[in-house]
Design a protein around this nucleic acid. Structure first.
Lengths: 325, 325
DNA sequence: AGGGATGCGGTCAGATCCTGGCCGCAATCA
DNA sequence: TGATTGCGGCCAGGATCTGACCGCATCCCT
């Protein structure tokens, strides 16, 4: 491997897998003379990657943090770990970075060797249950997110099967423009080619997405803002379960619990807050209220079905305790 | 930028940020002739990165998935997203990949520019509360994990403050050999230099870890297996809260819930399973039992303090429901 | 069916660079 | 103080890289 390009890449890789390298060892590994190694190190520095060097008997080279990111050279395991972490982050509605997670995942996915993609799938299957599971409604397939994100970026048409809210399924051909995450849910804003109009698609109701192979020119989203478009589409939909609580306790503690449970907090003075939580699953909401009630004093003014569910939970627990006591 | 090395790196970067590039545009961006661009593409292919090309009027180049990972060239946002995802994964005891996550995080951390590291910290502060919060005991600082992982890898001594189980604090100088994750907890197996013996340190009780600047030769871990060493150390410790439930329901459904809650499942026939859960926080255990009880029929044979806690919860809920109804 | 745009690969000549070897110097550690 | 290591200058020969030109294949659109 006498090509300087390959050598510099390998040098970067070596510097990333061990902090310290004595110059002699590096030169030997790369199969070049000591002098040439120094020149390669210089080249790296010219490229903006700061390589520290220590003289003296225990000297050597190390890669330090610089002004910008060097290319990351990952081994298989690390790539899998990153993919799994990103998939989890993308599915978890991690405030503020979901979209970037998906973008990074798409970038990784594009070059991830098949064998690693299989491993990621296997690991992910064991990871997701550790989190919210189906409490927050159907989960989004991160693979689909990655594919759609790539398609948006590269302006490639996609085909997929879509099941409407009323249950009717159809096959679609669309020009994807933007992914929008709202809470725990993802929406795709796309131009539906066959229907000749803009649509928003819920990603969790979309099956077998695949690239159609054709590219398309950009087209202005109505209103110029995809997020606003989704918001408008959502506003025309019936609302789901929703509960309001009055919680007694210091605002920051309540806010911490509420954020953990995915609720909104609004202080209403007098050491109390109004907490609003939404959810698809009445069971999940009941548990969230129970958790809030365990940590703080709570007044519930909820919808009847939630009160009923909580009564059922309270009854079950009472029975359970009675049997155990 | 006429250096071929830099050019190839930039070419890789361009290919990763857009799937399709017409040759002409690439050539212009890189400031080289068309012919030279083709040669650079060839070089990438020789290096093992498969670059697909499409002839024809809408032709261009694209980077495909190959046999091994190409260097990942991330922009700032993506690097932050990956760091956040990895920190979350490392802290979540994601089955089977925690250690790799930490390794990847360490690699990233080593070259992460400061401004990005600050952003990661800020985002992470808003992310962690979305997860288990303090339910599962003190959280581990992913920054510390990354640093310790680097120190293990590069065999650098570390200093840190450590608080023993009995509350006594001391300053330590250690030669770190291995990080071991057990459940939601991390342990560092290290040679304590001042005491001249092997120790295991709980990472969440360790403060201000920093590199001591000295390197050390490897030293065989007693028994040859760090994980076993930790297990032996743990075996000599008193156990924490623990609860056993008998759960009625199909084994796989119960197993799914239990895995989500972090419990162990053992089918005992007759459509029942024994579920064992452990935790530091009695409140968290009570909630976990409540959640299990909501989804399945449960018999509790728990420790009295847990029964008491559950009685308290049941009472609170009953009051809450009565007030709401 | 044909034309245009695009990618592929060959060849060539000149300029550029890369490499290894040598030197003296500075910093660090024992 | 001496040994080890990194740094940078210098040099000469050889490898390479570059841009230019060419004909060819493929694909899409007209």
């Amino acid at each position: 491997m006498s090509d300087p390009t390959a050598r510099v890449l390998e040098l970067l890789s070596l510097l990333q897998t061990h902090r310290f390298w004595p110059g002699g060892e590096l030169a030997e590994r790369l199969g070049v003379s000591h002098r040439t190694l120094r020149r390669d190190i210089d080249r790296l520095r010219l490229l903006g990657y700061p390589v520290d060097a220590t003289p003296g008997v225990a000297g050597g080279y190390r890669l330090a943090a610089g002004a910008h990111m060097p290319p990351l050279l990952l081994d298989d395991d690390e790539a899998v770990a990153i993919a799994v972490g990103l998939r989890a982050a993308a599915g978890a509605a991690v405030a503020g970075i979901e979209e970037t997670s998906v973008r990074a995942l798409a970038k990784l996915d594009q070059v991830l060797p098949d064998r690693l993609r299989r491993r990621v799938g296997a690991v992910h299957a064991n990871v997701v249950p550790l989190r919210w599971r189906d409490h927050a409604g159907p989960t989004v397939d991160p693979e689909a997110l990655a594919l759609l994100s790539l398609a948006c970026r590269d302006r490639e048409q996609v085909r997929f099967d879509y099941e409407r809210r009323d249950g009717e399924a159809s096959s679609r051909l669309a020009e994807p423009h933007q992914l929008v995450s709202a809470g725990r849910r993802w929406y795709l804003v796309a131009w539906d080619v066959r229907r000749g109009d803009w649509r928003t698609f819920r990603v969790d109701r979309l099956a077998r997405p695949r690239l159609a192979g054709a590219r398309f020119p950009p087209r202005p989203v109505p209103g110029g803002d995809a997020a606003a478009f989704v918001a408008r589409s959502l506003a025309s939909m019936p609302t789901r379960h929703r509960v309001e609580l009055v919680v007694h306790g210091p605002a920051d503690a309540v806010a911490a619990t509420a954020r953990y449970l995915g609720g909104d907090v609004e202080p209403i003075g007098d050491g109390r807050c109004r907490v609003t939580m939404r959810g698809d699953s009445i069971e999940w909401l009941a548990l969230a209220v129970a958790e809030m009630a365990m940590l703080h004093q709570v007044e519930l003014d909820g919808p009847p079905e939630l009160v009923g569910e909580m009564a059922r939970l309270a009854g079950r627990l009472t029975t359970l305790v009675a049997a155990a006591g």
